[in-house]
């Protein structure tokens, strides 16, 4: 049998083993297809040019957004306590990493103590500029680390007393930050395998955010 010294470069996607390079290409292709498909209905920035989306369309868009927010790449830093989480099983971050006063760790154990401005694939540490935890007001989990239901997350995201005073346009901007984008380019784990990414593409996520904000950010009950 083959053994552990073989670095598992590449990961399973649709039952196939593909290399990260191929995944990158695949993503680009998917994005291109998505933009071609949507070409008629959107302007250059991907915003709908037609009538304002309905509440039902807005809610559907929210569900797409929620599918991203509840993904480990995002929710691991929207915790309800003093610690970030790691990996797809969302365990508490190892090595006693703590939130710290500004969500960036503490003096000698900062997020930046390991996380750099880009992914360190040779050592398996993810990174992007401004790596930090969301404030506790933006927690999307309960005290037992269970992901909050869609309605509760939506209320948090739309509550400007909790979300840092962001309106719809600002939320779209937040979703365009490098930190949020990172979820779709999360790099390799230290065993050489690729981290999982949210269930929809980044383009779909941004389009959904726009549709949802244009529908006046409806939240499910």
């Amino acid at each position: 049998m083959m053994c552990s010294y073989e670095r598992k470069i590449g990961f399973a996607l649709g039952g196939q083993i593909v290399s990260p390079v191929k995944v990158g290409l695949l993503t680009i292709i998917l994005i291109s297809v998505a933009s071609l498909v949507g070409a008629g209905a959107r302007n250059q920035e991907g915003t709908r040019t037609g009538p304002r989306p309905s509440r039902a369309e807005g809610l559907a868009a929210w569900q797409q957004i929620y599918s991203v927010m509840s993904h480990p790449r995002c929710i691991n830093c929207h915790t309800a306590d003093g610690y970030p989480q790691q990996t797809d099983d969302r365990h508490r971050h190892l090595f006693n990493v703590v939130r710290g006063p500004e969500g960036k760790g503490v003096a000698a154990l900062q997020c930046a103590t390991c996380h750099q401005s880009s992914n360190a694939d040779s050592t398996g540490v993810p990174g992007v500029p401004d790596w930090h935890l969301a404030p506790l007001s933006m927690r999307w989990q309960d005290a037992n680390d269970k992901v909050l239901p869609s309605s509760a997350v939506c209320r948090t995201v739309t509550d400007r007393t909790k979300n840092g005073g962001l309106d719809g346009a600002a939320l779209v901007k937040h979703h365009q930050t490098e930190l949020v984008k990172w979820a779709w380019q999360p790099g390799l784990r230290n065993d050489g395998t690729a981290r999982s990414i949210p269930p929809i593409s980044y383009e779909q996520f941004i389009a959904a955010t726009r549709n949802w904000t244009q529908a006046r950010m409806p939240c499910p009950q």
Partner: peptide, 11 residues
């Protein structure tokens, strides 16, 4: 303060 064992020299 940085853990030099996980920071590639290129970064």
């Amino acid at each position: 303060p940085t853990r030099s064992c996980v920071v590639p020299v290129a970064l």
